[in-house]
Nucleic acid binder design. Structure first.
Length: 412
DNA sequence: CGCTAGTAGATCCAGGTGAT
DNA sequence: ATCACCTGGATCTACTAGCG
């Protein structure tokens, strides 16, 4: 059963996709169900006789496996890339090695190329010679496929460069009523998605949960440090974390490793999750750590607080198996550095403790997207805890600007 | 003239992935 | 196990603008 936005987007794509307009960009907020839309569109294009093969590209194996499950379920066909299958799913990394065979495939058949989390590929100004490896591979494949479908919740790049294959317009051509909710990249060009589904709409439609974002601060921070030149000890008081961070030599990253703020954020998360689990016993929490060592330390802290924890990092070869197990288990917490961020679908997660040192809007929204996906009628809220760092605060404010009044709160 | 603040670029590092 | 490549953060340096 499709949601209304998926039906609308599907109809628009089916009208638009043609030899004159072979590219379609769907920008939908994380958790809205982009992959299901992609699968249903694929099915419709096959039925219409426009395509007979689908190539899916994603950034990580976890994302690719997730997408393959959805595609196989909807199409009721195998996507292992072998004889008789209807398509193949690959990571961008793997694409470079399969490029030649895929190009040949495209020449003999009609291929739909789905490229997920599109912001990973770049081609600044559409310049082939400046594209990154993933952008290059996409451009090389483009000429051999019939249609392309780009999917992203955040279709811009932190470095401000452009995405390949897509339409950009000069800033002066931009309609005056255009949405200003996206961060403006410093370039003069703006991307025009073919369909946009915002977080605001998703919450109003009951597709996504209401996020409550709580930024932890402390109004009396005492720091004792040794003066680098005089060697004297000095004690200073700060009224807030932003004020403390203005002091040279005090870094956000150091705060993340400091006992008091770390424990405070975790305690808030633990308390919130226990409350949620009284009514929703399978509700889970996500901790995004700054490094593997940091993740191990956090795991220890959670275990000390009698929580069940699953730690997944790239150092652990069983990480992907553990991720799969966590999906349907009732373990309370999952702790990771970067493996449970982009596109990983664990809908029972409803609480997040953000303790990563990454401070980009991309990452912030991606992580929030992990807890926002709604499963039932009774799980309409999710909770995000982080430190009151100026950049994070700005991202949170910008998010709430984008939301219906009173639906999202920023507390400090 | 010197000081300060801000910015751009280069370099290094860490985490993650896949090919060999 | 090693390598190459993706991302993003931290740090250093060089340059510029503004100011007294």
């Amino acid at each position: 059963m499709l949601r209304q936005w998926q039906t609308e987007c599907l109809e628009r794509a089916l009208i638009q996709l043609s030899s004159k307009m072979p590219h379609f960009l769907c920008q939908a907020t994380p958790g809205a169900g982009k992959m299901l839309l992609a699968a249903v569109l694929t099915e419709a294009l096959i039925k219409r006789g426009d395509i007979d093969y689908v190539v899916y590209l994603g950034p990580t194996r976890a994302v690719v496996n997730d997408a393959r499950r959805t595609l196989e379920k909807v199409l009721n066909r195998s996507l292992d890339g072998r004889l008789g299958s209807i398509g193949v799913t690959l990571t961008y990394h793997a694409l470079s090695n399969r490029l030649v065979s895929l190009q040949q495939l495209g020449q003999n058949g009609h291929v739909l190329l789905i490229w997920d989390e599109s912001h990973h590929a770049s081609a600044p100004g559409g310049q082939v010679h400046q594209a990154n490896q993933w952008g290059l591979a996409l451009i090389a494949l483009e000429r051999h496929v019939r249609f392309t479908l780009a999917l992203s919740g955040t279709p811009w790049r932190t470095d401000g460069s452009c995405l390949p294959l897509l339409r950009y317009v000069e800033a002066t051509d931009l309609p005056s009523n255009s949405s200003d909710s996206l961060p403006r990249v410093p370039t003069q060009k703006h991307l025009i998605p073919d369909y946009v589904y915002t977080l605001k709409e998703a919450i109003q439609d009951g597709v996504c949960r209401y996020p409550t974002i709580e930024l932890v601060d402390n109004h009396s921070i005492g720091i004792t440090r040794t003066h680098p030149r005089t060697g004297r000890k000095e004690a200073r008081q700060y009224a807030s974390i932003p004020q403390l961070l203005k002091h040279p030599g005090v870094h956000y990253a150091a705060l993340l490793h400091d006992d008091a703020p770390l424990q405070h954020v975790l305690t808030l998360g633990i308390n919130r999750l226990s409350t949620l689990r009284q009514h929703d016993p399978k509700a889970g929490g996500l901790v995004v750590a700054a490094s593997i060592q940091h993740a191990e330390e956090i795991t220890q802290r959670l275990e000390d607080a009698h929580q069940t924890v699953c730690l997944v990092t790239s150092h652990d070869p069983t990480a992907h198996t553990q991720l799969e197990t966590f999906r349907d288990a009732d373990t309370a917490w999952i702790v990771s550095v970067g493996m449970v961020t982009e596109g990983v679908n664990l809908p029972r997660l409803r609480v997040c403790c953000y303790l990563s040192h990454v401070r980009t809007e991309q990452f912030f929204r991606q992580v929030l997207g992990r807890i926002i996906r709604r499963q039932t009628r009774h799980d309409g809220h999710c909770y995000f805890y982080a430190l009151n760092e100026p950049l994070l605060r700005r991202f949170a404010r910008r998010l709430t600007d984008d939301l219906p009044d009173e639906l999202a709160k920023v507390e400090m």
